[in-house]
Design a protein around this nucleic acid. Structure first.
Lengths: 129, 129
DNA sequence: CATCGGTATGTTCGGTCAGACATAGCGAAT
DNA sequence: ATTCGCTATGTCTGACCGAACATACCGATG
């Protein structure tokens, strides 16, 4: 791991875009929550997802709650007890939320690429001078 | 002003996009800093800009410092003392930073509009059911 | 029915951050 | 030289936030 660290100014990656969606003045969804959802999808539980991204179970659980609340419907369905103590999975809505976010992110990044490069050029100018 | 407030679920505005630019793993520029820069540009001073957006002078000043640091060059030029006690204005770089950000924001918003509407539809479905 | 692992929730503690004050410096204008 | 308004900077304090613990519950499974 860490293949691309140690490179102080990775010329292709920065500056990069990060996108948030304001669903509610008090509720936003950004890269962090989406990554959590993806990890829940692939890990099958909130706690495993948390561990996978080095996040405490409580924090992950609270975020899931917040996501469900913001969306006014469940993006994650939890099952308590059972075979392996329970688990969690994305609802169809949750899956589509992730897919839509990633698509929006790609569109935005691609639409902004040129301006982003121009901005990088501006900043590089300042660096030398 | 405030022509479109008082509309609890303004159907055209939410969900909306908000864009941040990661210039540095530790330095991002988003809507707040850009708005501050715009206010500095129109008000002519950091303190007036802060007042205009109900932000303490210290906070505004700290943000300006952070912006200049992140960009590795001045986006805001300050003048201490003088005619009205001094003032601040955007440098050419600062002006172009704001312009580029706004353009990136518009591009992103426009590129994502369709998906955003689809997302709104998804959420509306959850609201009724 | 005891075990197991995850969900569900509350509590406590330490660090961080923003806001409120406080003050000094500066340079033009009077 | 005094005034004025803004820059420049430091300190303090309260609020908020996240990490760490601590339990309780739940349901399949052996």
């Amino acid at each position: 791991m860490n293949k691309q660290i140690m490179r102080k100014s990775s010329p292709t990656s920065l500056p990069s875009l990060s996108v948030r969606i304001d669903l509610d003045p008090e509720g936003r969804i950004g890269p962090g929550k989406i990554l959590l959802l993806e990890n829940i999808d692939s890990c099958g539980s909130i706690s495993a997802a948390g561990r996978a991204m080095n996040m405490s179970y409580k924090r992950a659980w609270d975020l899931v709650d917040e996501i469900n609340r913001i969306c006014q419907q469940a993006a994650v369905e939890r099952q308590t007890g059972g075979k392996n103590g329970g688990g969690a999975m994305l609802t169809p809505f949750g899956l589509s939320l992730v897919a839509r976010y990633r698509k929006i992110e790609r569109s935005a990044e691609s639409a902004a690429r040129k301006e982003l490069q121009a901005l990088r050029a501006d900043i590089a100018v300042g660096r030398k001078g």
